[in-house]
Design a protein around this nucleic acid. Sequence first.
DNA 1: CAAATATATAACTTGACAGTTATATAACTA
DNA 2: TAGTTATATAACTGTCAAGTTATATATTTG
Lengths: 113, 113
Amino acid sequence: MMTIFDVIADPTRRIILDLLRDRPRIVSELVAELEISQPGVSKQLRILREADLVTVQQEGRKRLYVLTPKPLSELDQWLANYRQLWEDRYDRLDVYLEEIKQSEKEDSNDNTE
Amino acid sequence: MMTIFDVIADPTRRIILDLLRDRPRIVSELVAELEISQPGVSKQLRILREADLVTVQQEGRKRLYVLTPKPLSELDQWLANYRQLWEDRYDRLDVYLEEIKQSEKEDSNDNTE
DNA sequence: CAAATATATAACTTGACAGTTATATAACTA
DNA sequence: TAGTTATATAACTGTCAAGTTATATATTTG
């Protein structure tokens, strides 16, 4: 099965999600925007459906795809563990070590021989 | 080249990031935690390096890997476009449509024959 | 210096997945 | 009902990346 990480890794699927963020779309609209074949689009839509990132509304012979973004919150939760780290950058070991690395780089000029 | 989406899509790399979130580690420590070979770990570390998600500190013959989480903010920015959508769920078209879908499902019980 | 340790790189294999074309299914229309 | 439109599914192909083993590189130690 595909994790949410796998699902959003694909650029085509991200484009679809971004399009649906604006408004729901029928398949042919998505096909028009994406530069791949109609079956290719349907294939990605199936994956998005199985990940519960979209739902479908039958409209006669058309199908309206609607964004249901809730599963993205899982990604958000994972990210939350890191958010703090990149936000307050000043009392962190990694920054400290990077500074060391920088000064060592500057030193290492005379070692070249 | 690999996008940040590709980088975090791999479960091994996510484990490495999560381990480094706790504290910096030398390669052999990471190898001990992950169930793949040492070269396999080194390969993923290279990808994390190229994505600027980690930096290395040479410590004698050991190498200390340190998390530098800033590139994850790109992912965060992408997510930000959706966060609002799953948070306020009550005036959204998608929820409305999902309710319709639900009641239609309940109706379709008598069609089974 | 030789042996041992720590890590990286090279070459290779394999599996998965995105895209393709061809076809099926279903709904509307003349 | 026959034809057309809209979408999905099936079968196939090619690419790519994750892991492997073997080897190279670099550092420490006796």
